[in-house]
Nucleic acid binder design. Sequence first.
DNA 1: TGACTGTCTCAACTCTGGCTGATATAACCA
DNA 2: TGGTTATATCAGCCAGAGTTGAGACAGTCA
Lengths: 109, 109
Amino acid sequence: MSVELPVLSGPRLDLPTPEVSAAVETAALLADGSRAGILALLRSGPHCVCEMAAALGQRQNNVSNHLATLREAGLVRATRQGPDSRLVYYERDEAACTAAATIIDELLR
Amino acid sequence: MSVELPVLSGPRLDLPTPEVSAAVETAALLADGSRAGILALLRSGPHCVCEMAAALGQRQNNVSNHLATLREAGLVRATRQGPDSRLVYYERDEAACTAAATIIDELLR
DNA sequence: TGACTGTCTCAACTCTGGCTGATATAACCA
DNA sequence: TGGTTATATCAGCCAGAGTTGAGACAGTCA
């Protein structure tokens, strides 16, 4: 028995569609300066919203909005701790961030 | 001599703005299903435009457009080789892809 | 040569996503 | 208690990115 082996085959129009949705969603989270800036800021430890808004030159509600996006994606956590409990401190979920980096890394190998 | 040490400091409103533009630009390249799919397809070797358009379920001109974006970013190369020189084969620039993965990885540590 | 194929480019349209502005809630302080 | 601060949420607006449709160009084949 033998299998048909294409010789000098032309275009293969039956390639399977690659599954990249997880990488796309992850990349979309990072493809915004505010969100990427938040993740960079949080490398040095927890920060509250107003600190990050000041560092990023963004308004508080925008930063809060981006934090909600990152929170829903699981990349950051909110904790209302410290002497002034009006301040909401955010910290990175390192496991989730590592997982996100892995997803991107697997696309780019 | 002593240095002023903040005790139970409140919000620090003087944090430096993090530099994330390279990571944001890189992530933006991957934050599209067509471009991410192209990079995934090219992991298995060079492919021509029509092959990728078929695999991605996208029109040829769109794929060509996304390839131009990836080409300008340096992630892929075009070569007009093979028996039918109408076909433009694209391949990944592995060094550039690795560099891109590193940039993302450094943001997410 | 003419018909056809594969690729590229570009103007016009669409639509997603971030920003603005306003408001609501909760905690702190006088 | 009232005033202020920190955060969250939401409708509306708008710029940017992707898609569509058309056309141009080069290479192939009869």
